[in-house]
Design a protein around this nucleic acid. Structure first.
Lengths: 187, 187
DNA sequence: GAAAAAATTTTACAAATGATAAAAAAGGAA
DNA sequence: TTCCTTTTTTATCATTTGTAAAATTTTTTC
């Protein structure tokens, strides 16, 4: 997905603002398995996914817990790190070979201060992210694992083809064994 | 909490911007049990809590599920409704007699378009909200109900005094019986 | 303060999920 | 292909959580 299209996904930008954004963006590619963001660091870059798929995860007692998948058109940013300037709690790794559009968080911050259209574009981007997170939180709170799995395959059927089941299980908040049982029941 | 202090919680605003915001704000009070926002409606107002406590909840099969508590200084808004202009999925009701600062979403939108400081203030407000929601999602995914309860009483001990346990149980994603078991274990 | 209502806890049993280990299936490399 | 590694499924048992109903405590009302 071209950067031009990605930027337009969130909020209509005047051409001059879009160009100001694009002037700060470079392209970068990473192979499958590359770690893009590291928990415990203050991350200084953010990314838009041109192609490929990534996951965000946190360390836990018995392994890691995936809490987000990103694909073409999505923004990759260590939210905690970006918002508060403190160490982030998430790792992000590529699950396929990926192409990214890369930008320094500092540069984006500068644009927020100088261009009101970009400030509102950034606001909208975060607002949409918040809605999605809120909806997932609610579904974690009052849907069963089986319902969450069914929702997932209807919302993002390609995920099953592209992502290992162990990551999907942890994204759903269950063990891989439980997921396997659910899949067997449905069949 | 005075509106002046509330506005400053998120982002430093120049005096002129703060005054522009305050010019659009009026005060309103509601008794305990009042429904401030309704699921299924497009809500046109947002609120800052001057005093009191509220909960946001969604309808579910067997009753309602509380997914947010708001108290002094917090913003009350139907996020879905406000962001997308579509019907919201949440109800908000007062759990105590409450005083609010009220504002029309439309007016705030106008200020976002005309005042870059307010646009960035709004962005910061949402960013902080997103962090909180993300942290809760992660804790739902990889902490036990008991850990979540312990976190809650250390983060917001006053909640236990002010809110019924059935709401706290549903906020934690468990039944009231489970919560009761946890409380008995800890004692 | 007593009666009534509401909120919380307890109990017993059922269902769902987790932990572990082992088997089966799928995918990759020589 | 054939071997080897990784991923997924199956089976067993232990633990957690849910459901429903009763018992207890707390709060409200008169």
């Amino acid at each position: 997905m071209e950067i031009d299209l990605i930027l337009d996904r969130f909020y209509p930008l005047p051409l001059s603002s879009k160009e100001a954004l694009m002037a700060q963006i470079s392209e970068v590619s990473h192979p499958k398995g590359h770690k893009l963001l590291h928990a415990g660091r203050v991350e200084r870059n953010l990314y838009f996914i041109k192609s490929g798929i990534v996951r965000a995860y946190s360390d836990s007692d018995g392994g890691d817990v995936t809490f987000w998948f990103g694909k073409e058109g999505d923004v990759v940013v260590s939210m905690k790190s970006y918002v508060t300037g403190q160490e982030g709690y998430e790792h992000v790794e590529t699950l396929e070979a990926c192409d990214f559009y890369q930008m320094k968080a500092q540069h984006l911050g500068d644009l927020f201060s100088s261009d009101i259209h970009i400030a509102n574009w950034g606001r909208k981007l975060i607002e949409l992210e918040l809605i999605k997170t809120e909806e997932r939180l609610i579904s974690m709170q009052f849907k069963t694992a089986q319902q969450r799995y069914l929702d997932l395959i209807s919302d993002a059927p390609d995920l099953l083809q592209r992502v290992q089941l162990c990551h999907i299980a942890s994204y759903l908040g269950i063990t891989q064994v439980s997921l396997s049982r659910i899949r067997a029941e449905i069949r």
